[in-house]
């Protein structure tokens, strides 16, 4: 077993290709036969990935899903930020500049609007759960933006590590839910053109959620959602510990 684990570790990326290929093949079978094509194969594959990550996390107690199994460590490389960003940029190949401009100023506005919206919702929930310290409320609100904005805000406001973990958990819930729910609500919210995909990316903002959700809905929309969501975490890190925290403090 040790020998096999070492071997799989040395060839991690190849193991990851086989793993992902198997998951996708199984997902397409499930999509075709169990959902009769109502759910996209990619959507099922992403859901299966999340399900496996959950089972692995419960089993190993680690934070990297199936990548915490030594045999599947390569999945962590293939699914890591480097390959993700590389492939997202590749999807922009063939995009027309006129499509990028179609959302206009509303597309740009959707980013700060999305940050404020998520922050306000998260802060209200924190308030509802009895938190009274403005720094703690702001950290939970920031976590509802993305799981990076939460800890960055918490660290700069000096809150306890329990609150920081809660804010990360809120951001993870958001990312997972966006991945799973986007293909289900896409038609109802009119997510079928470049302009609405840019607005969606700016409002939801969580890069992994947005790019996963769009991949499961319509891969042609990925570059548009990625274009706005890539600014969201930065805008969130800028606003949450400063103006938004001060707003919470002033309101309490």
């Amino acid at each position: 077993m040790q020998r096999l684990e070492d071997f799989a570790g040395a060839n991690g990326l190849l193991v990851a290709f086989v793993f992902v290929g198997l998951v996708m093949a199984l997902a397409h079978l499930v999509a075709r036969h169990l959902t009769r094509g109502r759910l996209h194969g990619s959507a099922v594959a992403i859901a299966m990935g999340l399900l496996l990550a959950w089972a692995a996390g419960v089993d190993t107690g680690g934070k990297n899903g199936v990548a915490d199994y030594p045999l599947l460590a390569g999945v962590g490389v293939l699914g890591g930020a480097m390959f993700r960003d590389f492939a997202i940029v590749a999807t922009a190949f063939g995009v027309r500049l006129s499509d990028l401009r179609s959302a206009g100023w509303v597309g740009a506005l959707s980013i700060p609007l999305g940050v404020v919206l998520s922050f306000a919702v998260g802060a209200l929930v924190a308030l509802g759960f009895g938190l009274r310290d403005p720094a703690e409320i702001a950290t939970i609100g920031a976590g509802a933006a993305t799981y990076i904005v939460g800890p960055v805000t918490g660290a700069s406001l000096g809150v306890s590590s329990e609150i920081i973990s809660l804010s990360i958990a809120a951001g993870l819930v958001k990312a997972v839910l966006v991945m799973v729910a986007t293909p289900l609500v896409a038609r109802r919210i009119g997510l079928n053109n470049p302009a609405s995909a840019m607005i969606y990316g700016g409002l939801l903002g969580t890069t992994s959620g947005v790019t996963g959700g769009l991949a499961a809905t319509d891969p042609a929309l990925v570059p548009y959602g990625a274009m706005t969501s890539t600014f969201y975490t930065g805008v969130g890190c800028l606003m949450a510990p400063s103006v938004l925290y001060l707003a919470v403090k002033a309101l309490l």
């Binding site: 299966m48 692995a56 996390g57 899903g65 699914g79």
Partner: peptide, 13 residues
């Protein structure tokens, strides 16, 4: 790659 990304998320947390 997105499927691999999903499989390495901290879903349990």
């Amino acid at each position: 790659i997105i499927v691999a990304m999903a499989a390495r998320q901290n879903v349990a947390a």
